[in-house]
Design a protein around this nucleic acid. Sequence first.
DNA 1: TGATTTTTGCAACTATGTTGCTTTTTTGTA
DNA 2: TACAAAAAAGCAACATAGTTGCAAAAATCA
Lengths: 152, 152
Amino acid sequence: MAVRKQIESTARVLDPLKQKGLSVTGSRRKILQLFMQQKGALSHGDIEKKAGVTFDRVTIYRTLQTFLDKGIIHAIPTADNAVRYALCQDECGPGHHDHQHIHFICSRCKQIFCLDHFVTPDLHLPKGYQAKDVDVLVKGVCKECSAIAKRA
Amino acid sequence: MAVRKQIESTARVLDPLKQKGLSVTGSRRKILQLFMQQKGALSHGDIEKKAGVTFDRVTIYRTLQTFLDKGIIHAIPTADNAVRYALCQDECGPGHHDHQHIHFICSRCKQIFCLDHFVTPDLHLPKGYQAKDVDVLVKGVCKECSAIAKRA
DNA sequence: TGATTTTTGCAACTATGTTGCTTTTTTGTA
DNA sequence: TACAAAAAAGCAACATAGTTGCAAAAATCA
Ligand SMILES: [Mn+2]
Ligand SMILES: [Mn+2]
Ligand SMILES: [Zn+2]
Ligand SMILES: [Zn+2]
């Protein structure tokens, strides 16, 4: 049972790589795993810390770029000069990202979460401006931190 | 007439500084002026280029931080590791920013604009999440670039 | 003007990101 | 399974970005 579970879990990590036509390597497996284990989004720095000294910094940069290109992860804009990345849930593919979910930034724990809540704000742009893509960033207090605050 | 205009323009640059209780210095005047002359938002790097070798890099960092603190400029999140800054139009002050406008990122000219169009997306957050602030980033083609594309 | 406060510039440092090239690993095929 | 071709990783060297402490310079205010 435990073995079967482990096989499944391994497969779950390998699948996205093979599906996207990527060769399976140590760093790709490890980094993908980190994303899968993680509730929040990860910055390059986060990954470097979590992966330990296992991989060269350059490899992490290149892996993230590859994952972005292939539609395995998406970038989340921030105002702190540290772009975060998170797994794509939707049907993203090479050169094609389409997310309609909110990104929530907790001002207490500093984590960033993808919330699967669709939003299509009524955009009344000035004439001439053509919208292609909308990103909604919400800052506030996340579920866990709210609970902690309530208890205190 | 020309002189009067120049005095006015100088005053317009000085006003925000004095109003916020900041001492008036060369770098602050210059950087504030850059923002006022500019349609789009500016990154630290942009300012460094536009200001020439006039100021030390460190001074620019510190000036931007001061302007942020005092509510003279606001930071615009991006996915390219280069936060942009733009003047606050609203009544922002020390430790208090409140913007309700869209930020538009042109994928052609790469400029970022503050659009004075209010947006309050209907946020249906999961239970426990408390929203404090919302940032809407729209990616697309700006007015000028649309016009250029049409002509071609 | 001159003392006091604030800001700037500089140096030294850390962190972040990029590029070219060589070695190692992966993959597909014989 | 062994091998050749292709792809990725590691390394070095570099470029850019951001931080901190401190001394010199400038701004403010009396
Ligand atoms: Mn997301
Ligand atoms: Mn703005
Ligand atoms: Zn939190
Ligand atoms: Zn444009």
